[in-house]
Design a protein around this nucleic acid. Structure first.
Length: 679
DNA sequence: CGCGAAGTAAACATAC
DNA sequence: CGTATGTTTACTTCGC
């Protein structure tokens, strides 16, 4: 499974693989640890792809927005052109301006580019088709228009120049100015409306806009910016990305830009890549489109709205137009616990992705460096690792003094912590971690387990020495449930831990003791005497019984009960979608193709739901202690062993539980992957 | 502040 | 006797 690309495909020669192995041990394995710790299971090429795919994400998003904008503008333009076809000599040149350059530029998305977008799966095929058709239908007409408008604009420029020199502003011009202002106001309002929700979250610290992140849709609409400023802004934005976004971004945007230029001559095309810059450019350059400009024509670039559906994780509600989407957003995704939790989850998705990107970049760098420099050179190769260990230092420091992290339960600071821990992937083994590796992963309590974990944890925790934010009980249970027989010996549980979590490759005495302790302590773990010794099984009922205690009253979200799997699947789906949209085959295939994706996921979900329970409806009247299933499957005291057959109990329980509203809802999901073994 | 959950440490027992 | 496996108790931290 962990196979270094260098030894497997790219660098077949024995020497090289040895070299790399050497790097492995040199960097990732402390003297005390014999276990080879793979740098990462992925291949160099994929490393590049990852970096690139992530960086291209921004571009795709921009392209999507441009495309969406295009669609609207084309509709608008259709009307306009109907009114003012070039064949008819218009007597109001000033009013021609609105559809001039700024309007023309977005249309320059070519079918090829649309195709490109299609391939990126940003838009649904249907929508793309529609888009494409409209695009083609308008192409010819717009070419004519373009010529015409260009002329008109030149004419206008001339007129304006003359008028200004004359010190007089014609009525039309004033009118245009006021209309422009009005249009700006409208746009601003729309934008604000769109962003209201996110902004409110943001205000509460639930969303952080990372400096490195474009966060395009959240950019406040800058009024009164002159084109030069916009240009500058755009430059800054792009230059801000490019250094860290690697070359993929440059390349892609360059592609599009050049294509744009080639397909339509206007000089301002450089702006179109930034929807906002483009929008603002319109504001500054062209005049508003009088009354015929309905609200829907505003650039509805909302990251939560795309393809006519709400893109809120796990929602996918169909919203025919942007207005209904806004309604939907404000009604269904208001600022409540659920949204908050999902928001946090999404944050972690992003953070995980960023983390992964940073890690992979680092790895790639290390690999490159290592291969280009003397292999045995101790200084060069470990360099990134030194970085890592320094990070680890801070990590352990933060662990030593958890209070140093001022996190309020609602702030996103807590989820950040795993990020700082993240880079400790490769080593930290050398770190005599400060004292006992006490849990203190208070993140777990603050933050529901991220869906990112669900897909990424697999690889992540396998390689990163990050403490999994799950209780021992959950992990043990998961280990047992993953086994084909739903039963494991203690040693097998040990092995599962070490196999699945790099973290548990150290301090064996500690966590093994903890495992034993948990096995003995919790009634949900049942020891079964077997032919060849004793195995441990899980009593699901008991396991579930532990949970209600955590529930504290938050009456708000009863509806989540029935849609609670909308907590799990959507999260997963959200992640997958995010992955897919990011076109990261590495992770999608790696994690999706991995049958064990769901297994850990279920463990995570377990924790997730547990952590979320306090946000969930408690419905305490119906829950505690008396599930109907309990009658069918009496609680086993630890002393009375279960038959191996009875170990299947939980499974049947689960199926029944699907129909039990007051039973833990996630179970139906977490048991399907159970049969799949890890490797 | 109290309580419970969870993690850690350790003593102890038992089987192999 | 040493080790693995369990059991139990004590203590700490944390969230509620």
């Amino acid at each position: 499974m962990f196979q270094c690309v260098f030894s497997s495909s790219v660098l077949q020669p024995h020497r090289t693989s040895c070299l790399f192995k050497h790097l492995f041990y040199h960097s990732a394995t402390p003297a005390s640890q014999k276990q080879p710790e793979p740098i990462y299971s992925k291949k160099t090429e994929i490393q590049r792809q990852t970096v690139r795919a992530l960086s291209v994400k921004l571009f795709i998003f921009s392209a999507l927005q441009v495309a969406r904008q295009l669609l609207l503008q084309q509709q608008q333009q259709q009307q306009v052109s109907g009114l003012k076809s070039p064949k008819r000599n218009d007597k109001q040149p000033a009013l021609q301006v609105p559809v001039s350059v700024a309007m023309m530029t977005p249309q320059v998305i070519t079918p090829q580019q649309m195709q490109q977008i299609l391939q990126q799966q940003v838009l649904s095929p249907q929508q793309l088709q529609v888009l494409l058709q409209q695009q083609q239908a308008l192409m010819l007409q717009q070419q004519q228009l373009q010529e015409f408008y260009k002329k008109q604009q030149e004419q206008l420029q001339l007129q304006l120049l003359q008028q200004q020199h004359a010190g007089k502003q014609p009525k039309e011009q004033q009118q245009v100015a006021t209309q422009q202002l009005a249009f700006q106001q409208q746009l601003l309002q729309m934008q604000q409306l769109q962003q209201q929700h996110l902004l409110s979250l943001q205000r509460q610290g639930l969303l952080t806009i990372q400096p490195g992140q474009p966060a395009l849709p959240l950019q406040p609409l800058t009024q009164g910016m002159i084109p030069a400023e916009l240009q500058q802004l755009w430059k800054e934005v792009t230059s801000a990305h490019t250094p860290e976004e690697a070359t993929g971004n440059n390349h892609s945007s360059l592609d599009l830009t050049t294509t744009c230029v080639s397909s339509s001559a206007p000089s301002k095309t450089s702006l179109i890549m930034n929807p906002h810059a483009s929008t603002n450019g319109q504001l500054s350059v062209h005049t508003p489109k009088r009354e015929s400009l309905p609200h829907e024509e505003h650039p509805h670039s909302h990251p939560l709205y795309g393809h006519g559906v709400c893109k809120w994780p796990g929602c996918e509600a169909v919203c025919e137009d942007f207005q209904s989407f806004l309604k939907h957003l404000n009604s269904e995704h208001a600022l409540d616990d659920r949204s908050t939790a999902q928001c946090r989850v999404q944050m972690q998705v992003v953070q995980q992705l960023e983390l992964q990107l940073a890690k992979d970049k680092e790895r790639l760098q290390a690999m490159m460096t290592h291969l280009h420099v003397k292999s045995t050179e101790p200084k060069t190769a470990p360099q990134p690792l030194n970085l890592v260990s320094s990070v680890t230092l801070s990590k352990s420091a933060s662990e030593a003094s958890p209070q140093s992290l001022p996190h309020t339960p609602t702030t996103p600071t807590a989820p950040i912590t795993p990020v700082t821990q993240g880079p400790s992937v490769i080593t930290t083994t050398s770190m005599h971690t400060v004292g006992p590796i006490r849990r203190r992963y208070s993140d777990k309590y603050n933050v529901p387990i991220s869906s990112a974990d669900i897909a990424q944890n697999q690889e992540f925790y396998k390689n990163a020495e990050v403490r999994p934010p799950f209780t021992y009980a959950s992990l043990i249970r998961q280990a047992i449930l993953e086994s084909p027989e739903k039963q494991l010996t203690l040693n097998e549980i040990y092995n599962w831990f070490t196999r699945m979590f790099a973290y548990f490759r150290r301090n064996a005495a500690t966590w093994k003791n903890a495992v034993r302790h948990n096995l003995s302590l919790h009634k949900c773990f049942v020891r079964v005497e077997n032919v060849k010794g004793a195995v441990w099984t899980v009593d699901e009922v008991e396991f579930q019984k532990r949970r209600p205690q955590k529930i504290s009253g938050n009456p708000s979200l009863i509806k989540n009960m029935q849609s609670s799997h909308a907590y799990c699947t959507p999260l997963n789906a959200a992640l997958q979608a995010s992955m897919a949209e990011n076109s990261i085959p590495l992770y999608t295939t790696a994690s999706m193709g991995n049958p064990s994706l769901g297994t850990l996921a279920s463990a995570m979900r377990e924790e997730l739901n547990g952590a979320m329970e306090h946000t969930n409806s408690n419905e305490s009247d119906s829950s505690p202690g008396r599930s109907p299933l309990q009658a069918a499957h009496p609680v086993h005291v630890k002393e009375e062993p279960l038959d191996p057959e009875e170990a299947e109990g939980p499974l049947s329980l689960v199926t029944t539980a699907n129909h039990s509203p007051d039973f833990d809802q996630d179970r139906d999901y977490e048991d399907e992957p159970v049969n799949e073994d890890m490797e």
